[in-house]
Each structure stands twice: as C-alpha cells, then as structure tokens.
Design a protein around this nucleic acid. Structure first.
Lengths: 255, 255
DNA sequence: CACAGCGTTTGACTTTCGTCAAACCCTTGG
DNA sequence: CCAAGGGTTTGACGAAAGTCAAACGCTGTG
C-alpha cells in the first residue's frame, strides 16, 4: 500500500540526494525503515545521551556537520572525525570502549535508523549494502588520511590538506576554485590538532603569499591550486628537492 | 565434493583462528574462495605493485604487521595505519585518490582475496558480512582514535595510548601486564608522528618514573597501569584537576 | 540601536619537540 | 668469530608552535 515516502522522508537529503542510502532502497524498505526510525535536529553543541545512543546507535547525517570528540582529563578536547551529508555512523557495540562523543558543530538534521530494519535491508539489498559499505570505507580512509595529515609536522601543511579535504567533499555543489569551510576556527583547530591562533596565522600566511583569498570567514577562494597542493604534499621549496633514493621499497611481484 | 580446506588454508590464521573471515564461511565458500585467491609472504619493506593491487585490491592479513604509508615530497613519510591479524583491507576504487602505500613492517603472510568471490560471499552469508563489517568498523574507529591521539599534543601521552592500543589488540595471547610492541622504534615514531629520538626519550621517562619496565626492545611490562592510563588520558598531575564546567555540552533528549 | 558575549586575530614570550652529531648495540653474513 | 651495517640511544642546540593577554569584530537579543 504505502509506496510514497513518509512525510518526514520527502524533504530529507538521505532520500532526495542521488546515491544516498534512502534513495537506493525500495519504497517498501523506505516505508518500513521510516516507521521504525526517528529524525532529530541538533543545534551546535548538542549531542545524544548515552541512553539514546544505546537504543539508536545508527545515525544518518542529512544536513550539517557532526563531530566525534574526545575529551582529555585536563579539559583539552580534540575533534577526531567530521561527519557530513550521507555519512552513516554505526556505533553499535563500541559505545563502551570508545570514549568519543558525537557532537553537532552546526545545526544538523539527522535520522536515527532502526538497527533491526537497517540490518534487514543490509542483508537483503545488495545495492544498499554497496552504498553503506562504500560510505564506511570512505570514512575509514578519510580517518587514515587525516591521521597522515596530523603526523605531518607543519601546521601550514595540515591546513592546506584540510582545504582540499573540504573541496573534495563538496565537489559538485561549488565552483572550481571556491571552497566552503563548514566549521568554525576553534573546531578546525581542534580537528587539526593545533590552536585557533595558529590556524589564524596560517590563513594569513596563505593569503599574504597570494595562494588563497578569504572572501568571508568561511568562503575561501583558491588563487593557486598547484601551490596549495605542493604545500599540502609537504613541499616547502618552490622546486621539488626530493631524493628518490630515500623512499625506495621493494615491490612484491605478482604471484 | 571438496569440503576439506585447501592445503594453503589449513595453517592460515584467517581460517584457524576463531571468528576470522575464513573460519565463519562455509566449507564450499572457503573452497571456492581459496581457488580464486592468492597467498603471499612479504618481508619487511615489501609492498604490492600498483598493478597487483588493481587486480587484487582485497588483502587479508594472516600474520605480521602491514602499514599504510604516505610519502611527502621532501622525503618525510608517515605511517597512517597499522593492519594486523584478521584485518581485511579493501582497497577497491580508492587506489587513485588515496596516495598511501601498503607496506609490510615485518614478515607477513597475507591472502589476496578474489574480489568476485568475496563480494558473492558478502551478499549471501550474513555471518561473513557481520565479521567483515565489524572488522571494517574496528578499522574506522581505530583510525579515529588514532587521530585523537595524534592531535593530543604531548609525545608521552601518545606513547602511552599506543601501549594500550597494542595491549588491546593482543588481549588474549599475553599475560595481563605484559605488552608486545610489534613494530620497530622508527616505525612507531612515524606512526605517532614524532622522531625516534623522542620515542626513546619517552620510554626512558616512563621507565625512570617506574611506570613500565622494558624487558627487551619489544617486551614492555606494565608496572602501574593506572598511572599509564592517566598519562594516556592527558592527566599530567597526580591529582585530577579537570574543571567539570569546561566540558559541558547540551544533551539532546530522547525523541 | 546598543549592548553583551563569544569567536577571531594579533603580538610577545615560553616550551616542547625536532635536528644534528656521535656513540652504542644488536643482528646478519662472511 | 669478527666485521659491517642498520637501528637505537644520548646529548646539545634551535625552531615551530603553544600559551598568555589584549584588542578587534561579528551576531543575536532586549
């Protein structure tokens, strides 16, 4: 009977954007999932209670930015990951070990998916499985790349990498050399493991060198993408001075 | 007919260890997968050629330690992730974007799984799907936790966290307060985003304070787990001085 | 409209960690 | 068994980024 999406799904990006989870499942599956799931709007700084996450450990992000934050004993906190549109955050079975908190960085619309329905769809619908699998792998490699960025020592390099990360995530919506920074300076600093002051100094540095232009606090225009790319790749000099002998490793032949 | 595992699988940890992928699939599935897959032994420093990874993008780790390394233009490199027994590394569709290299840090036995067979088993066997899904989520949250560790400023804190990470991964095999560091100092330094000299100084620091004892270069005995835990959590003082008012965030109630 | 409060930027100073150089140690191979 | 080579440790020094303090700017609200 009900083959039209529920009211709450009709305007939700998880359904209306091409290729996201609720777009690739069948109308019946969407109907069942919708019945058992709960939408929510979070404002900046809000999180879910532990109780809510136990019952609803699977969160789909429709709009906005969520973060996984870790708190240290002395009050320092770090943002370990960012989640945006289309990300499905599956926290089943890890709430105890992992002491991270899921906190909104901007007003966000999310949908807490019914674990049972989600599981059933995953087991029966290869398309859905593919989308979710792909999204989780993207999250994994994003986190791995981010780890690589963090262990890159230079603050400027980390900022350059982050600008490309933002650009990559909004590839379609935005013109070629305009990038939106979707988080505040303080959050950006915590994500990159540095201080807001340092973030500010690095933006100024890039601007003084004519590599970017800050149209507003969150709109960055890229004036020299190659220069920014070289910085992100750890190339401080204008000429590439890498010694190719230093990074050899044996290649295991096909067998 | 063939319901006994292929010779190459009989001693492989992916099959013989409880709960790993090749242990939870059916004998027929294992048989088919084995026929289409390729085992390999890598020595320290060896990697797969790009060509090999295009044809065999799914690598299961049976023994040893593999790393995902990123090279910077000036020769610096960073180890962004570590893969150990039971990890299934799925590099399908990401070889181009992600410039990381999969490199062995110690002698390792791996199995390049047939993508077609892997996919078929994933779609038809919920148990296998569950194991692989769980493993990928572990990889994701390990990478996220690692990002949090890296953005924690202090070198000592990062080392303490790493010791717990090692302990966590070898929970069953080893006695309560003995931990094996499965990688060399240089690799450890690159994984934690610091210099080998700093790693050395931090180990000495922990030893001088009576928190750990180095039985050998890779065997660490934990003398005071609570003290190590406090360091890992960013608590520099003996007494916990955190101001609870500083880390409040609004909790979105159940709805 | 003006004020309050937070977020951001700037500058001066401090500290941690990286850099360089050399000694030491452990493994590997002749 | 000895020698060679890479990996690890130690110490002295320097630089990048953190800390502190204050000014500036934006935003929302009475």
């Amino acid at each position: 009977m009900a083959v039209k999406p529920k009211v709450k799904c009709q305007k939700c990006a998880m359904y209306s954007e091409t290729g996201l989870f609720c777009d690739v499942i069948s109308p019946d599956e969407l109907d069942g999932l919708s019945d058992e799931s709960r939408t929510a709007t979070l404002k900046r700084g809000e999180t879910f209670s532990g109780e809510a996450l136990t019952t609803w450990p699977i969160v789909a992000v429709a709009t906005g930015v969520l973060s996984m934050q870790h708190l240290l004993e002395d009050g320092r906190k770090s943002i370990a990951a960012l989640f945006m549109q289309g990300d499905i955050i599956d926290l089943r079975d890890i709430s105890n070990r992992n002491r991270g908190h899921l906190i909104a960085l901007s007003t966000s619309n999310v949908c807490r998916l019914s674990p049972a329905m989600f599981q059933r769809i995953m087991e029966s619908n290869p398309d859905a499985q593919h989308v979710v699998w792909r999204n989780l792998r993207d999250q994994t490699f994003r986190a791995i790349d981010h780890s690589a960025d963090l262990s890159k020592k230079q603050a400027l390099e980390k900022l350059a990498s982050f600008i490309f990360e933002c650009r990559h995530r909004q590839a379609r919506n935005v013109s070629e050399n305009s990038v939106v920074i979707p988080v505040r300076r303080v959050d950006l600093a915590e994500y990159l493991g540095m201080q807001p002051e340092t973030v500010s100094r690095c933006f100024r540095n890039l601007e003084e060198r004519g590599i970017v232009e800050l149209k507003s606090i969150k709109h960055v225009k890229l004036l020299s993408i190659p220069a920014l790319r070289r910085i992100a790749n750890g190339d401080k000099n204008p000429v590439n001075l890498r010694d190719p002998a230093k990074d050899t490793f044996k290649i295991l032949s096909f067998g």
